[in-house]
């Protein structure tokens, strides 16, 4: 008798958790059913009109804050004082003594960040998914997700305390690494790791939840077949689950790459908080900011932004095509 109520609750949670996953698992089924029934009720034209209305808000914002500024940046980057300047701005930016160090900083950070994200998010998602107890798995996902609710700048504020050995609750760890004061902790060599830790802490939770959804998507029949063939959890993960999650993993890589190349808030806040020990020109985006607002050179700034866009675009293309993001099943 006493066992029943908890069990009932468990099943409830299971239902609420699996429902969206199930819907996602059979999108064809849902799609097939809906259009048919609605097609009978409504004429096609008004439906498309509604569609346009729904999408218009996004399109207007995309044009105003995405496409047009990009085009303006393209225009700015090839001109100087309103007249065509060829690649002068790009040459100038390449020749800037701060440019290559900034590129190196961001590249090293991306390597650390993407590697840790790919390895640990997949691993944690598999572990959480493998947990037998539903309530435990739910609580883990919730805990992982909490830091993601903090906006970039405010999470850096929190890290400012954690990283300062004089006030940090984990000062003993910092001192263990030989960092006795804040200046030593945030020395330039440590920054890629620090930014990786901050970014992982804020961003990984959301991805774990998404990966969990992807894992739920894998049909139970496949897993059961694997189990019958004698595959343990590790073999199942390597041969069944990870290959089937490939699209989600490359989606995560593309999104994180885009976010990572734009590294700005973290070094900027850290630079201000460390009174300049973290240089104000650490990342590429910061350099673009300095160009525009400290030197009044909007053209050079646009050139940097455009370079960033091209490189991030090219790298994303690799993930998109190698990861089969746009392939249909």
């Amino acid at each position: 008798m006493p066992r029943h109520p908890p069990r009932a609750k468990e099943t409830l949670i299971t239902i609420s958790l699996t429902a969206p996953a199930a819907a996602a698992a059979s999108p064809e089924a849902g799609r097939r059913r809906e259009p048919r029934s609605s097609a009978r009720r409504r004429p096609d034209r008004s439906q498309t009109r509604i569609g346009y209305i729904f999408v218009s808000g996004y399109t207007v914002l995309l044009l105003a804050f995405g496409i047009l500024p990009t085009l303006y940046a393209v225009y700015l980057s090839f001109t100087k004082d309103g007249s065509f300047a060829g690649v002068d701005n790009f040459v100038k930016v390449f020749g800037d003594y701060r440019f290559l160090p900034a590129v190196a900083h961001v590249a090293v950070y991306l390597v650390f960040y993407l590697a840790s994200l790919l390895v640990f998010v997949v691993l944690l998602a598999l572990l959480v998914h493998g947990l037998g107890r539903r309530w435990l798995s739910t609580s883990y996902r919730f805990v992982f997700y909490i830091p993601g609710a903090l906006a970039g700048a405010s999470s850096v504020m929190l890290w400012l305390f954690l990283l300062d050995p004089t006030v940090s609750p984990v000062a003993f760890i910092l001192r263990g690494f030989g960092f006795d004061n804040f200046v030593q902790t945030v020395s330039v060599d440590n920054l890629p790791i620090i930014f990786t830790v901050i970014a992982f802490w804020t961003g990984a939770g959301g991805w774990i939840v998404i990966m969990y959804g992807a894992l739920n998507n894998i049909s139970g029949d496949v897993l059961e077949a694997a189990r019958i063939d004698g595959a343990g959890p590790v073999k199942t993960a390597i041969h069944i689950q990870i290959p089937l999650m490939r699209k989600w993993i490359s989606y995560m890589a593309v999104m994180s790459l885009a976010a990572g190349t734009q590294l700005f808030v973290e070094p900027r806040v850290l630079s201000q908080a460390s009174k300049g020990v973290v240089p104000p020109d650490y990342s590429i985006n910061q350099l673009a900011y300095l160009y525009a607002f400290r030197q009044g050179d909007f053209n050079g700034s646009a050139a940097i932004s455009l370079l960033l866009l091209l490189v991030a675009g090219a790298l994303s293309a690799i993930f998109v095509f190698r990861g089969g993001l746009f392939e249909r099943d």
Binding site: V183, V188, S274, K275, G276
Partner: peptide, 8 residues
Amino acid sequence: AYASIIVP
């Protein structure tokens, strides 16, 4: 520059 070079 003093902050980013000398202090650390």
